[in-house]
Design a protein around this nucleic acid. Structure first.
Lengths: 331, 331
DNA sequence: CTGAAAGCGCTAACAT
DNA sequence: ATGTTAGCGCTTTCAG
């Protein structure tokens, strides 16, 4: 009852092991007769090629490793849909691993992929230092998605976070807001760019930026919002670093009996499915996550199959999604 | 600039390859001196063991493959947290793969894990036929989480979906509802059990069950709700098969200008983070997903390390989470 | 405690 | 078109 190997199939089909190998890899230099015989023997035995052996011998895996920053953030599911569809198109398999919002796990997941010898890896929303990423990129094609970084070694694909933040501020300013607070994403991917975009846009509008530090989670967004409300400085709008923290903010505002958007406006970032729910109807920014995912694997394929070696940095245009949490400030 | 192998390390440390192998696996039968020498050489060279070679030779991977039914459903992130923490405790690595709500991908992901030779696999919310699962379970330890099935071969860990559904119906009946419609989960994992629990509970209460078929997605919940509203039969409460379809229902009700819970009550299942948001505040059922995840890997470990071979079926108690979408029916 | 040698199951020249 | 023969990088007896 032990698993059949290629030799078993070869024996049964009355051919050599090499021939079986060719058939398993759909080589075209096999006669139809032998092919049929081999396939037949294989299916009778329930033979399946051992991937460890295959990868070891061929040094290729046709597998892309994906490190997901936070499985709880619905944003990533969208990126992965894009990765998946492009991977399918090119005949690659995806293997996922979550970083559980923790640097150690993120590193571990990345290393595990390298040790497994995947052909390439894509990091989504990575938080570990660029240097650590570049180190790995020296030994394997690597693209970083949804996390801006400048590097000569790794490819990146992002939306333009600075621009996205500016769109938000301009929208709020147009509505008449002057006291716009930003709850940032701390060390989260793209957080500093969004924060920077916010600051610049505020200054261009002649307004004073005011940032409360948080992270890309609901809990953290709620906590930061409580801080904001506890201060005695006026606030008419909050721009949260992502949808998750915006949702936390929404809860905190509710707790504090502040109506959104009547008393205070709120904007998020990412356009997750939750933002689109009627009862939430969060004004937010769409990154084009499917496109980001597709581009990421396409960039990987360029390196893998077309030998590109200079880094490429792709940017998707963010778009403001106007819903109901941002309106004119109270007069 | 080629990757260093064990031989390189051995040479540099002035020992044999076998010794290096022992050190890499932290065997205790290595002198401190040699160990230090080996570790030193390894880190100088930046050596990392090739997992394909290791797995091939040892026939073990210390890796658990996890097939996730739908990455977009936040329910699964909770289960995976449980899996992860138990896996960490036992020194196993997790590898994930999504089924993208599609049977072919689910099968593919499962097979890929088997071909990679992972030590065991856990299926979360699987939808493929039991027979297909049992077939795989013959060659590798396998536990099915969040998807009820009776089998002598595979372990399962679930909440008691029938009981959960009954809790919902009883709650609604107690509130005074008599026209309770169930939007089911179609072929989704646990859907038929929930539906069955609903039917039985309705009958015990002397009420007539009424089921609209759907799936465990937002879109499908919305569509089914539109159907329900389009019929001319009275409805005062909707019990959706899971939170995702409940969220779809919520949107559809909003579209139809039906207030929740004033005009119509709504209950979900899973207690995802979205249900807990103040602006949603969905009454739902908690499955204890973290516990389900933990149990799943523990059951795997029992097979892997303690030689258990008879199937075990664990059940977690579901609990009703009362929030604000279910109230007395309009009078 | 250390070293030599035989594979693990497959691929990839190289022959034929 | 098919067979032969080396490995891939590691683990694992088995001797010393």
């Amino acid at each position: 009852m032990t698993k059949p190997t290629m030799d078993d199939v070869a024996r049964r089909a009355g051919v050599s092991r090499a021939l079986v190998s060719l058939v398993m890899r759909d080589s075209d230099k096999v006669s139809d007769r032998s092919r049929a015989a081999v396939l037949d023997a294989a299916s009778q035995l329930g033979y399946r090629p051992n991937l460890n052996a295959r990868n070891l011998a061929s040094k290729r895996t046709r597998t892309i490793g994906v490190v997901i920053n936070d499985l709880h953030n619905p944003y990533f599911a969208g990126v992965i849909d894009g990765l998946k569809s492009a991977a399918d198109d090119h005949g690659y398999r995806l293997l996922l691993n979550s970083a559980f919002l923790n640097d150690g796990d993120e590193r571990g997941a990345l290393e595990a992929f390298v040790d497994f010898g995947v052909d390439g890896v894509v990091l989504t929303g990575a938080r570990i230092p660029s240097a650590a990423i570049e180190h790995v990129a020296r030994s394997i094609p690597l693209v970083v998605a949804s996390r801006p970084m400048t590097s000569e070694l790794v490819d990146t694909v992002n939306n333009d976070d600075r621009l996205g933040a500016r769109l938000v501020v301009e929208h709020l300013v147009t509505l008449g807001h002057r006291h716009i607070v930003h709850i940032d994403g701390g060390r989260g991917a793209g957080a500093s760019q969004r924060c920077d975009g916010y600051r610049k846009a505020m200054k261009s509008a002649g307004l004073e930026p005011r940032v409360h530090r948080a992270a890309f989670t609901e809990q953290s967004g709620a906590a930061a919002t409580r801080e904001v409300l506890a201060s005695d400085r006026p606030v008419t709008a909050i721009f949260a670093g992502n949808d998750m923290s915006a949702l936390g903010a929404l809860d905190a505002l509710d707790d504090a009996r502040r109506r959104v958007p009547d008393d205070i406006s709120l904007v998020g970032y990412d356009n997750t499915f939750v933002a689109a729910l009627r009862h939430i109807s969060l004004t937010t920014v769409d990154q084009g996550r499917d496109e980001i995912g597709r581009l990421a694997v396409e960039m990987l394929i360029e390196r893998l199959e077309h030998g590109r070696s200079e880094a490429r940095h792709a940017a998707c245009a963010p778009s403001l999604i106007v819903r109901e949490t941002a309106a004119r400030p109270p007069t």
